[in-house]
C-alpha cells in the first residue's frame, strides 16, 4: 500500500503532490444482481496522475462513472475537497470542478471544434437570457473573454488549424484531442480520462501522453485515468489502482504494483521465454 504523507510530497521530477482531493470510501455499486464495484476505497491526491487499470469488465469505467457522478453507489461515501458528496445530478458534479472524457468519444458532431470547446466553459458564463438574446453588454464581453481562454487551450493542444471544422469530419485521433480540449476548457480540478489512448498508434499515443503530462504540469490539474497500455500507465502515472472482478487487488506506485503477485496473476502476466 502506497503511503503518501498528509502534507504532500515532491516527485522526483519536481511536481508538488498535495493532500487528498478525492476519497472513495468502501464504494459498492450494483446493477440488479450484478456487483460492478465491490467495497473499494482509494484516494486521489491533489496534483497527481492516478491510473486505474485492470482486465476487461473489472469495473474501471463503473468506478469512473461513480467519480463523475453518473452512477450513485448503493454503499460507501464519496468525499471531494473535504466534503461528503451526496447523490448528485451529473451537471451538478460538473459545477464542482470535475470534467471527463469518454471511452467512445462523446463530442457534439454537428458543432465546430471551437463551439465544442466553448461548450466546456458553460459554467464560466453567467450572462442572462436577455443579454444573450440582445447580444449586448455582458453577453458579448463574456463570449470574447471565454473565447480568449479557449484559444489558449487550442494553442496548447495544437489544433489551431481545425478550429472551425465540424467535429464529425475529423479523424479519430484529433477527436480525442478535441475531447480533451473540451474537458480542459472547464478548468477542472479533477480531470477524468477514460482510455485516452484507445485505438491510437504509437505516435498518437506519444502525443497524447505528452499532452496529459503537460496539462498536469502546467495547469496543476489532478488527473485520474483508465488505460490499457501498460507502458504508458507505468510511465506517466504517480500511483496506480488495480481492479479485478469489481475488487481492488492492488494500489501503489507503478513499481509496487508491478511487483504485486496478485496483480501479475490477474492482469499483467509474466513473460514466457
Amino acid at each position: 500500500m502506497a503511503s503518501v504523507p498528509e502534507e504532500g510530497v515532491v516527485t522526483p521530477d519536481g511536481r508538488q503532490i498535495g493532500g487528498v482531493l478525492m476519497e472513495m470510501k468502501n464504494i459498492t455499486l450494483r446493477f440488479g444482481g450484478v456487483v460492478a464495484v465491490k467495497d473499494i476505497s482509494f484516494d486521489i491526491r491533489k496534483g497527481e496522475i492516478r491510473a486505474i487499470i485492470g482486465p476487461n469488465g473489472a469495473g474501471k469505467s463503473s468506478m469512473l462513472n461513480v467519480i463523475s457522478g453518473f452512477y450513485n453507489p448503493q454503499e460507501g461515501e464519496v468525499w471531494f475537497k473535504g466534503y461528503r458528496r451526496g447523490p448528485m445530478k451529473p451537471y451538478e458534479v460538473a459545477r464542482l470542478g470535475i470534467a471527463r472524457t469518454f471511452q467512445n468519444i462523446a463530442l457534439f458532431d454537428g458543432m465546430t471544434v471551437l463551439d465544442n470547446i466553448m461548450t466546456g466553459r458553460l459554467n464560466k458564463m453567467r450572462s442572462g437570457f436577455l443579454a444573450q438574446a440582445l447580444w449586448w453588454g455582458a453577453a458579448e464581453r463574456e463570449e470574447i473573454e471565454n473565447r480568449a481562454q479557449v484559444e489558449k487551450i487550442i494553442d496548447f493542444l495544437e489544433i489551431q488549424n481545425i478550429r472551425k471544422t465540424p467535429v464529425g469530419r475529423l479523424p479519430y485521433g484529433l477527436k480525442k484531442r478535441v475531447e480533451l480540449a473540451r474537458a480542459l476548457a472547464a478548468e477542472p480540478q479533477l480531470l477524468l480520462l477514460d482510455e485516452p489512448m484507445a485505438g491510437m498508434n504509437v505516435e498518437e499515443k506519444e502525443d497524447m501522453s505528452r499532452f496529459i503530462l503537460d496539462v498536469n504540469d502546467e495547469f496543476g490539474t489532478t488527473i485520474a485515468l483508465i488505460e490499457h497500455d501498460m507502458g504508458v500507465v507505468m510511465d506517466i502515472s504517480d500511483r496506480v489502482v488495480v481492479m479485478d472482478y469489481g475488487r481492488k487487488i492492488g494500489d501503489g506506485t507503478p513499481a509496487e504494483v508491478r511487483g504485486n503477485q496478485e496483480v501479475i496473476d490477474a492482469y499483467l502476466g509474466v513473460a514466457h521465454d
Binding site: 451529473p90 460538473a94 463530442l107 457534439f108 461548450t119
Partner: peptide, 15 residues
C-alpha cells in the same frame, strides 16, 4: 446543440 448531438455528454459537461 449539445443536447441535440449527445445528451449524456452534454449533461456531464454541465448542461
Amino acid at each position: 446543440m449539445a443536447i441535440r448531438d449527445m445528451d449524456i455528454a452534454a449533461e456531464i459537461i454541465g448542461v
